[in-house]
Amino acid sequence: MLCSESEAAATNVFCSESKRQQQMFSVAKAKRQQQMFSVAKAKRQQQMFSVAKAKRQQQMFSVAKAKRQQQMFSVAKAKRQLQSTQSNGNQPTLW
């Protein structure tokens, strides 16, 4: 069965149009995938940053807490020594 020229031309136009649509679809799909990858990557980076920030804050809090406890211990120790000295009747000497 032979096709007329107009049928052949119509088939070629249809095929060309179909190829363009397929290419456009492929390009659009690739763009969406790239955007999804970029969004996922940004989310992971944000999570990693948040976790690192939280760890730093926890460490800073722990260090500050340890310093306060050390200062409180030193003050309490100095008070006890002063009270002990005063109860013995000795005056502390200040240099």
Score class of each variant (00 low, 15 high):
20 R>Q: 11
16 S>W: 02
4 S>D: 09
86 Q>V: 08
62 S>G: 03
79 K>I: 05
54 A>E: 11
48 M>A: 09
34 Q>S: 12
15 C>K: 13
11 T>Y: 12
63 V>K: 01
22 Q>Y: 00
35 Q>G: 06
14 F>Q: 04
53 K>E: 11
32 R>F: 01
83 Q>F: 14
55 K>S: 12
33 Q>E: 13
92 P>G: 11
56 R>N: 08
63 V>A: 04
13 V>E: 12
22 Q>D: 02
25 F>W: 02
94 L>Q: 15
29 K>V: 00
25 F>R: 00
75 V>M: 12
55 K>L: 12
34 Q>W: 01
72 M>R: 10
83 Q>D: 13
85 T>N: 05
79 K>T: 02
74 S>M: 07
71 Q>H: 15
10 A>W: 07
1 M>N: 02
11 T>M: 13
63 V>R: 01
8 A>N: 09
16 S>V: 04
33 Q>I: 01
36 M>D: 13
66 A>D: 03
84 S>M: 09
12 N>I: 03
93 T>D: 15
19 K>Q: 08
86 Q>R: 11
47 Q>S: 11
28 A>S: 07
78 A>E: 08
24 M>P: 00
89 G>L: 03
64 A>N: 06
38 S>L: 06
12 N>W: 10
21 Q>C: 02
13 V>L: 08
27 V>A: 02
61 F>I: 03
34 Q>F: 04
79 K>W: 04
43 K>V: 14
52 A>Y: 11
69 Q>F: 03
34 Q>Y: 02
